[in-house]
Structure formats: structure tokens, C-alpha cells
């Protein structure tokens, strides 16, 4: 899977949890999930579960703590895939 493919897949996941007044075009690598995309912090849990299903990996609680931006999430996904 290329970095671009991973990014697109993550974008699709994140899109589901955007509030109705935030558009998918507002997602970029630097986007902070809760501060900029206005995603409810409770929904970060659901994003983690969807990421696990999509990339067939398992994230630990500590991984989630460090997952503030789209870039953070991609880095964690890369790390987990590499460990598989």
C-alpha cells in the first residue's frame, strides 16, 4: 500500500465523523482531529476501531493518546504495519 493509498483510506474513515458543517476538503495532513476538524473527542475511539478494521492492525491506548493529527495517525499506522 502506498502512502497516498493509506492517506485516502484514512480520509474516508475520518470523513464519517466530521460534523455536518465541516467538509471533506478541509482534511489535510496537518489537520488536528478535535481542534480543527471539530470531531467529537468521543469519536476518536470509533476512528481507532475503523483504522484497526481497515488496516488489519491493533492500536494500544498509548497509540491513541499520541494521535492528534492526520499525520500522527498515518505514522502510527505505518509503525503497526511494519511490525506485522
Amino acid at each position: 500500500m502506498t502512502e497516498e493509498e493509506k492517506y485516502q483510506k484514512l480520509k474516508t474513515i475520518v470523513q464519517t465523523y466530521l460534523p455536518d458543517d465541516v467538509g471533506v476538503d478541509q482534511i489535510n495532513l496537518e489537520s488536528n482531529f478535535t481542534q480543527e476538524l471539530n470531531i467529537n473527542s468521543a469519536n476518536l475511539v470509533d476512528i481507532v476501531l475503523d483504522v484497526e478494521d481497515t488496516f488489519d492492525i491493533m492500536l494500544e491506548n498509548e497509540d491513541m493518546d499520541g494521535m492528534l493529527t492526520v499525520k500522527d495517525a498515518l505514522a502510527i499506522i505505518d509503525k503497526k504495519i511494519a511490525k506485522k
Binding site: 464519517t16 465523523y17 466530521l18 460534523p19 455536518d20 467529537n40 469519536n43 470509533d46
Partner: peptide, 8 residues
């Protein structure tokens, strides 16, 4: 419902 609310 919003899309987020409809999920699950």
C-alpha cells in the same frame, strides 16, 4: 440525525 449519529 447527523451522519455521525447515524453511524452504529
Amino acid at each position: 440525525f447527523s451522519n455521525v449519529q447515524l453511524k452504529g
